[in-house]
Amino acid sequence: MFVVTVTYTAPLAEVDPWRPAHGDWLKDLISRRLLLAVGRQVPLVGGVYLAAKMPVEELDQLLATDPYVLNGVASHSVVEFEPLLVAPGLEDLKRHG
């Protein structure tokens, strides 16, 4: 499993036009369970994704298709981890880790 942080590399005024395409991209990956959770950082300087276990090369290829990255307004940072303990009701995360 991976934690991906997104950092805007451009002002929000340059990020905002790509937000609809980025949202569609996220919804597609969520529907395919490649991403398990997504959200905005607070304050709004980027986002955070929880990504399912996959070969790191596959994740890199997916992240390269992010409209934010394609349009040069954000970058990603990836940390791989293996969930060992989870809160009750979240046991499914260990299967995706």
Score class of each variant (00 low, 15 high):
43 P>R: 07
12 L>G: 09
62 L>Q: 05
63 L>W: 02
42 V>Y: 06
41 Q>E: 06
13 A>I: 00
88 P>N: 13
49 Y>K: 03
60 D>N: 15
81 F>S: 12
24 D>S: 07
28 D>V: 03
54 M>V: 06
70 L>W: 04
67 P>T: 11
85 L>M: 15
25 W>K: 01
18 W>C: 02
76 H>C: 14
5 T>D: 10
53 K>G: 11
17 P>V: 00
61 Q>H: 15
43 P>A: 08
77 S>V: 14
37 A>V: 12
39 G>W: 02
40 R>N: 09
86 V>Y: 03
11 P>G: 11
2 F>T: 00
83 P>A: 06
57 E>C: 01
80 E>Q: 14
38 V>T: 13
71 N>T: 14
59 L>H: 02
69 V>H: 09
34 L>S: 04
46 G>I: 13
84 L>E: 14
50 L>H: 00
61 Q>G: 15
38 V>G: 08
43 P>M: 09
73 V>Y: 01
17 P>R: 01
70 L>R: 08
78 V>H: 09
43 P>H: 10
24 D>I: 01
64 A>G: 15
97 G>I: 02
10 A>K: 01
43 P>L: 10
93 L>V: 13
64 A>C: 12
88 P>F: 00
83 P>N: 01
22 H>T: 08
8 Y>T: 08
90 L>N: 02
80 E>P: 11
88 P>G: 07
17 P>T: 00
70 L>C: 14
48 V>N: 08
61 Q>N: 15
20 P>C: 10
14 E>F: 07
4 V>W: 01
25 W>M: 05
12 L>S: 12
20 P>F: 00
76 H>S: 15
80 E>I: 12
41 Q>V: 09
49 Y>L: 15
4 V>N: 04
90 L>M: 14
19 R>F: 10
10 A>S: 12
39 G>E: 04
64 A>I: 09
19 R>H: 11
28 D>H: 04
